[in-house]
């Protein structure tokens, strides 16, 4: 059974195997297909049109399925690997071991934002940014630029306290747990973390930075924590909602999985601590 661990608790061996599996998916071309898929949805999902991956109730089950698929690809390379999660309420500075040279490498240099250390630095030769929106083919970051702050645990708890999963109009203007977790409204959790990292993580091709998976693994864990806090609440809407994925409707691009299928993460993995 796959156990997703806090990245801060990984052993040196676990870090190395995770990084090696990422590099292999990059080398064999599978990694970039995930970047392409994500960007296609982020550019196609609109507040007043069809929306599946973002700014909609299916933001959470869509990313859960997307991460499971990615994790399965990693495990095809190395069956011991699981996606770690990054609790950015705890590891909230650029000095975190997450950003050390033996793991993801650090922030970008000031001149052009280029990451210059770690296994994903352009100079290491194994991480060309191929799926991109501008001419730059090197991984970039600008951790905490302009004094930006990552969300605090108190801010997370304020969102986890929201008992309603989602609400009309089921988009970036919605009240409820999903949109506050996604960050279009309120204290802003998920979106803010993308902006805090900067570089490709702030763009539509954000999975170019491997921290994307660890950020979304934590967002996914927060969904599980919310379920534990609100056992009488569930995914909404239930049925008949135009342009929106209802509980038992299938999600693109898989077309064989529904939000209902994704509600119980323990069918696929567990966490190292109670979710």
């Amino acid at each position: 059974m796959t156990v997703r661990k806090n990245q801060a608790q990984l052993t040196a061996t676990e870090k190395r195997r995770f990084v090696d599996a990422l590099l292999e998916l990059k080398r064999n071309g599978q990694y970039d297909t995930f970047v392409t898929t994500h960007n296609a949805f982020i550019m196609g999902d609109t507040d007043n049109g069809e929306r599946v991956g973002h700014r909609s109730p299916s933001f959470l089950p869509w990313h859960r399925r997307f991460l499971i698929q990615f994790e399965q690809q990693l495990q095809a390379v190395d069956p011991s690997v699981a996606l770690p999660y990054w609790d950015w309420t705890a590891d909230r500075t650029a000095a975190s071991s997450l950003w050390a040279a033996d793991f993801l490498g650090g922030t970008g240099r000031s001149r052009d934002g280029r990451v210059t250390d770690g296994p994903f630095a352009f100079a290491a030769g194994k991480w060309p940014v191929s799926i991109r929106v501008d001419g730059r083919d090197y991984l970039r970051r600008d951790l905490g630029a302009g004094g930006r702050q990552l969300p605090t645990r108190a801010e997370v708890d304020s969102v986890l306290a929201m008992a309603t999963y989602d609400a009309p109009p089921w988009n970036s203007a919605s009240d409820g747990f999903r949109n506050h977790l996604e960050g279009w409204r309120g204290v802003n959790l998920h979106n803010r973390v993308h902006v805090w990292v900067g570089g490709q993580m702030a763009t539509g091709v954000s999975p170019n930075d491997p921290v994307f998976w660890m950020h979304h693994a934590f967002i996914d864990k927060l969904w599980a924590e919310w379920q534990t806090r609100h056992p009488d609440s569930t995914y909404l809407p239930a049925a008949g909602t135009r342009n929106v994925v209802d509980l038992r409707e299938t999600m693109r691009p898989w077309n064989d999985v529904t939000p209902a299928d994704m509600l119980d993460h323990t069918r696929h993995y567990t966490f190292d601590t109670a979710a």
Partner: peptide
């Protein structure tokens, strides 16, 4: 961009930088 709805999410407004289109989207607010 694949998932493509062709238009609409630009709100019928196009932005260019040095003549190259910048994909933009309008939010509900």
């Amino acid at each position: 961009h694949g998932g493509g709805h062709g238009g609409g999410h630009g709100g019928g407004f196009a932005v260019h930088i040095d003549g190259k289109e910048l994909h933009v989207m309008r939010n509900a607010d």
